[in-house]
Design a protein around this nucleic acid. Structure first.
Lengths: 352, 352
DNA sequence: ACCCTTTGATAAAGCGCATCATCTGATGGC
DNA sequence: GCCATCAGATGATGCGCTTTATCAAAGGGT
């Protein structure tokens, strides 16, 4: 019953063919669903081949299969940073959840590109000018820190890649599964306005990333739409905690009743600054964040925009699958997914 | 400056060779650091080749390289359950952290085997009797729910695999990176004894898993070592919350002052049962757990044995790397790693 | 001058697979 | 009963690379 112990070498198609007394082409056809490659196989022969495969424990060699032009059923996931450190996980986890799910549905495996360092500790797609992602049929790319030039090259090459999050690269149209931060931001501002706030300040981290630009768009749209119900809806650039700490007192003095930050980190800073002035949140000042993300655990339950991470993950894989199934269609695949808004306890009607 | 968009076909080594007027072997040598593969290349020729590579934007094809070379530099990670659901993450995360780190050091990639379902939703290594893990050079296997028969077959086959956690399979010696639960358990009991406890009860979940057997060993060792300082150190089987709830009152009545559970889940149950009797933890009764793991977040800060998950992960990968580098050595590789003990607030000296 | 070593380079043999062009019988239409 | 058809199978070819065996030419010692 026990097969050979420690086979020196993995069995090949040829071995199977020999055992089943058929040609290698037949084995190939059986493995890839019969009739593949224009070769037909009868039921009895197929059974005999399956049997031989069973007996030898044959498994197709990915490299060979790839080389010969077939697919490997491996989908890659690339991130410029390590995936599993605690701080990273809090960001990546929802995406991973969705990706794993979708990849599982496709009956594919997931390849994490961990060993793609170029010299220092930084990951890179191209190593010695070699596109390491080629190991997979295609790849999903997620994360914030990134090398745009490299990504542009990747797409130029025609490599099947889908981003999680919107990306605009110069000279080439990228495929992505993105969150609709624009609409979410607008809705959040509308909600704030509906509560009675007339002076709103947006504390902008200063990033030019697409996900932030989308929020900018939404904020601007809201300001236009609500022009007659708002006395002020201004944007202030606060790249760090210090900037927030310094700015908040002035805003309070100028009568702003609600602050909107990019993320919970800055929201925490804003609350701290407010409380340092003896103002309570949300009693005297409301605070909301345009992202639920936070590197460090926060004690407050902020009202935030919620990124549909899991859905973005599954959507990205689906887009990638579509690209792989229809390689002749070179057009970019895009999905934009609605965001939620989580009602925390940092948003209330303004005093008086 | 912009390269060709969507090149129909990527340039090959042969193309470069033609342009540089050298043989393909020389190109290969230049790409892999000269003198690779026993082929030497002069400085001027090398320069000419580099130039041609640049000009064509040549990038080696990994599939072909792997096919020719043998190893794929892909290390597999297999789990019988999905990796990223919230509950699973709390268990897998530390291991993943270590694995990613070590794989990164090896300059390998990590392949997550997700699409290996046999019929229902359950994952399996063998699909149609075929070992799907062979896509990778070797694999690390982690998790609790498992198919021992399948694992035995896997090792019999000689597939390079390392377990995270001790495994004893019939008829074959497995490689693993394990935690030293035995010593940790003994130390925990010693600490409890040192606090003055003389009647200790171990609430045993009834599992026969190696990790639990190791704890059994440690508990027994402690009982022997501390025979004269202990009036009782007994084991009670409590497979579920109900069993705990029912048992605890009797134990309290019989004068046990410290309960040791397998995990935090049961520890929570024990606390609840004690408090239902009007006893406080740790005032009237001490509680400790032999694993920090808990599916659900606990409010108490239990004193527990801490599994060195990250270290086990890196150790497992190192062992695997050793197997891959020395395939002729068929002996099992094993690493046993010391556990920590986390001091929570559920353990105190017994009253009076 | 001779042989031996070293340097620089080449041609060719696979690696394991998918696929294309053929080939062989059996079937079927009429 | 004969040719067209097609299911079923084969062999060869090539994907792009690494590596081995081989070889030409250039020193270098005696």
């Amino acid at each position: 019953m026990a097969g050979p112990v420690h086979p020196r070498k993995r069995p090949t198609q040829a071995d199977v063919a020999r055992l089943a007394k058929v040609s290698p082409a037949v084995v190939s056809a059986v493995v890839n669903g019969r009739t593949a490659g224009g070769v037909r196989v009868g039921d009895t022969t197929a059974a005999r081949v399956e049997e031989a495969i069973q007996q030898l424990g044959y498994v197709p060699n990915i490299a060979a299969r790839n080389l010969a032009g077939g697919r490997s059923n491996i989908i890659g996931l690339f991130t410029y940073e390590a995936l599993f450190p605690m701080e990273a996980m809090s960001f990546y986890h929802p995406f991973l959840l969705g990706v794993e799910e979708a990849v599982e549905d496709l009956d594919c495996h997931l390849l994490l590109f961990t060993g793609s360092h170029v010299d220092g500790r930084r990951r890179a797609i191209y190593k010695n000018g070699v596109n390491t992602l080629q190991l997979a049929d295609g790849a999903v790319i997620v994360g914030q820190a990134e090398d745009r030039a490299e990504l542009t090259t990747l797409l130029r090459e025609g490599f099947p890649a889908v981003f999680i999050g919107r990306r605009e690269l110069t000279g080439i149209e990228a495929s992505y599964a993105a969150a609709d931060y624009s609409t979410a931001t607008r809705r959040l501002v509308e909600r704030i306005s509906a509560l009675g706030h007339r002076r709103i300040a947006r504390l902008h981290g200063g990033s030019g990333h697409e996900s932030i630009v989308d929020r900018d768009t939404g904020f601007t749209a809201a300001r236009t739409l609500l022009a007659d119900r708002l006395d002020a809806a201004d944007v202030f650039v606060t790249p760090n905690a210090a900037a927030v700490t310094e700015l908040v007192p002035r805003l309070v003095e100028q009568g702003y009743t609600c602050l909107i930050t990019d993320d919970c980190e800055r929201a925490v800073d804003a609350c701290a600054a407010a409380e340092a002035l003896g103002r309570s949140v949300p009693g005297d000042l409301s605070v909301a964040a345009l992202s639920e993300f936070s590197f460090t655990p926060t004690d407050r339950d902020f009202t935030t925009v919620v990124t549909p991470g899991r859905d973005m993950g599954t959507a990205a894989i689906r887009l990638l699958a579509d690209i792989l199934d229809n390689p002749s269609d070179r057009s970019p695949r895009r999905t934009v997914i609605e965001c939620g808004i989580r009602d925390g306890d940092t948003l209330a009607a303004p005093r008086g």
